[in-house]
């Protein structure tokens, strides 16, 4: 077993779930996406997606903007600055872990 001298603490707990990691990935390159676009991209159920969004929202990683399009409620999600920072750090940590284990 190779000794790993990279801190696993740098990996953010919030991104342990693949769905949450997916949400952050797509919001990292799209300014904002609505609920149905996220659902299509991630291929998860309404309830599942809603709960993951809620937890990311609680962390302050994604922002929510509600509006109306043709009298229908439309909710757009986007990445906050804190979210971007946390996601970047998470990516760096992943990179370091993989490099150190090679």
């Amino acid at each position: 077993m190779i000794k790993v001298n990279v801190s696993f603490d740098d990996l953010h707990k919030a991104f342990e779930s693949r769905v949450r990691l997916g949400i952050m990935s797509v919001l990292a390159i799209n300014d904002s996406l609505d609920f149905s676009a996220l659902k299509d991209l991630l291929g998860v159920t309404d309830g599942n997606l809603a709960s993951h969004i809620k937890s990311l929202e609680k962390e302050g990683f994604i922002g929510v903007k509600k509006s109306f399009i043709d009298n229908k409620p439309n909710t757009k999600y986007s990445m906050t600055l804190a979210g971007k920072r946390a996601f970047d750090n998470h990516l760096k940590a992943l990179e370091n872990i993989i490099k150190s284990q090679k």
Partner: peptide, 16 residues
């Protein structure tokens, strides 16, 4: 971790 990275990559590509 490698799967995580692959997932991030595919998600970014699929969404753009």
């Amino acid at each position: 971790y490698i799967k995580d990275i692959a997932e991030i990559r595919s998600m970014m590509e699929r969404s753009s």
